[in-house]
Design a protein around this nucleic acid. Structure first.
Length: 228
DNA sequence: GCTTCGATCTTCT
DNA sequence: GAAGATCGAAGCG
């Protein structure tokens, strides 16, 4: 697979189900971890209220507006990273968020990155878990699939020693694909009008569904303090 | 097993 | 100043 892969030059809604069952391989710091994608969410650019591109291009999301095949990695909730694969066409901010997957190679490395001893099913059953298991963070933002990273030494891998590849996508989505509302997206972009989450039925590595939770008021005391 | 809530900090309004 | 494409520990049944 090369540069701007035509397989990814279509809408996120089309690409997301095709990604299910595909294998993303990341080589970093001398280790290779491969994940079979079992869950993904589509974000359709500036027309999608749930998308980071909805409010236009910023320094944070500029990779999202890159050519198809670009990795858009962002930092969220003060401690987590998530990874998207940009699709559609350059400048459109269309991307698929990788929400869950099964580690099929490099499990020891993935476990080491995940720090806590966890069950295999818990290694990548969530967007931040998957990014962590693969070693994806802000230093990978803007990396193009199949292109060796040659950026600054800010990351913990030697320059030129980081790359990611995606297995060829099938013409049709695999059997057993289910759809539902996106996870954690508040407002109109998260309503059932946008059932743009796709997963493989029966897979253990699919993350648990959580509706968007409105931010709670800070409590005067520790947990358990009543709200009134 | 399921539910609830705090941690943590960047980004945007 | 508030919200956020989350996670994991603690509490409860």
């Amino acid at each position: 697979m090369t540069g701007t892969d035509p397989q990814l030059s279509r809408t996120a809604l089309e690409v997301a189900p095709l990604l299910l069952g595909a294998v993303l391989t990341v080589h970093r710091g001398g280790a290779t971890v491969a994940v079979r994608i079992t869950e993904a969410e589509a974000y359709e650019g500036e027309a999608d209220p749930g998308s980071h591109g909805f409010r236009g291009r910023t320094a944070r999301n500029s990779s999202l507006f890159g050519p198809p095949g670009t990795l858009y990695c962002y930092f969220t909730y003060g401690m987590h990273h998530c990874a998207n694969i940009v699709c559609g066409s350059e400048g459109r901010a269309s991307a698929v968020l990788l929400r869950g997957g099964e580690i099929i190679a490099g499990e020891p490395e993935a476990r080491a990155r995940r720090r806590n001893p966890v069950r295999a099913r818990d290694l990548a059953n969530g967007p931040a878990k998957l990014a962590q298991a693969l070693g994806l963070d802000l230093t990978c933002d803007g990396l193009h699939l199949d292109t060796q990273y040659t950026g600054t030494g800010a990351d913990n891998a030697a320059p030129g020693r980081l790359w990611a590849t995606l297995s060829p996508l099938p013409a049709l989505a695999p059997p057993g694909v289910k759809t539902g509302p996106r996870v954690g997206v508040a407002g109109p972009g998260g309503s059932t009008d946008y059932p743009w989450r796709f997963w493989l039925e029966g897979e253990e590595s699919v993350s648990a569904y959580r509706a968007a939770t409105p931010r709670r008021r800070p409590r005067p005391a520790g947990r358990g303090a009543h709200t009134d």
